[in-house]
């Protein structure tokens, strides 16, 4: 998943350099890095990445605190790298937040796979969210259209005739059917006007 934008909050030292090298070697785009939790918070709020890789040991706070803020405020997804003695504690705390906890030391491929899988998950989630939104919008439109149809049918017109007429006006005026329906509901478009178009 090249093109995934990563930010690193790993502190100083050899571990940080190794992680950076593994990720850049795997082709990921590292847009920013921070030496402390505070620096990470400042930078990530301004330029949120797709994923933040956070080290548990940071000089001014533990990485779990940083990861929770990033999750609570929906800034970005987080992979948290923790020492063995903190894994259980962090996994428990991270459960509510969709933070991925990985135990150090970790093989390079585990890290790469974690980033790729997280991005795939994120992409899939985004797709599902978009689909859901589209379905909701569809449902909202149908409700409005059905209510407008109902108003016309109340004048003694059958359903099919009402629907066909509304659709024709929508095509003639080049506006979405939902808008025509809303105009009927608002009283700004009457059956007489719609009929007149046929």
């Amino acid at each position: 998943m090249l093109g995934t934008r990563l930010s690193l909050a790993l502190g100083k030292g050899e571990f940080s350099e190794k992680v950076k090298s593994v990720l850049t070697g795997a082709g990921f785009m590292i847009i920013d890095s921070a030496l402390s939790g505070s620096e990470a918070l400042r930078k990530l709020r301004i330029s949120p990445p797709d994923i933040a890789i956070v080290n548990y040991e940071l000089p001014d706070m533990n990485g779990l605190e940083l990861a929770i803020v990033l999750a609570e405020e929906e800034i970005c997804r987080t992979i948290l790298l923790v020492p063995r003695n903190q894994k259980e504690n962090c996994e428990q705390a991270a459960r509510s937040f969709d933070i991925l906890v990985l135990e150090k030391p970790l093989p390079r491929q585990v890290l790469i796979n974690a980033v790729e899988n997280m991005q795939k998950y994120e992409t899939k989630l985004k797709k599902l969210e978009d689909e859901l939104e589209a379905l909701k919008e569809n449902m909202r439109s149908r409700i409005i259209i059905d209510r407008a149809k109902g108003i016309i049918m109340g004048l003694g017109v059958n359903e099919n005739t009402a629907y066909t007429a509304m659709r024709r006006v929508s095509m003639d005026r080049r506006v979405p059917l939902k808008e025509i329906a809303q105009m009927i509901l608002d009283g700004t478009l009457s059956w007489k006007e719609i009929k007149g178009k046929e």
Binding site: L35, S36, G37, S38, E39, R42, L58, P59, D60
Partner: peptide
């Protein structure tokens, strides 16, 4: 204010 690398 900003903090330094040590969070100070």
């Amino acid at each position: 204010f900003h903090t330094d690398e040590e969070g100070k």
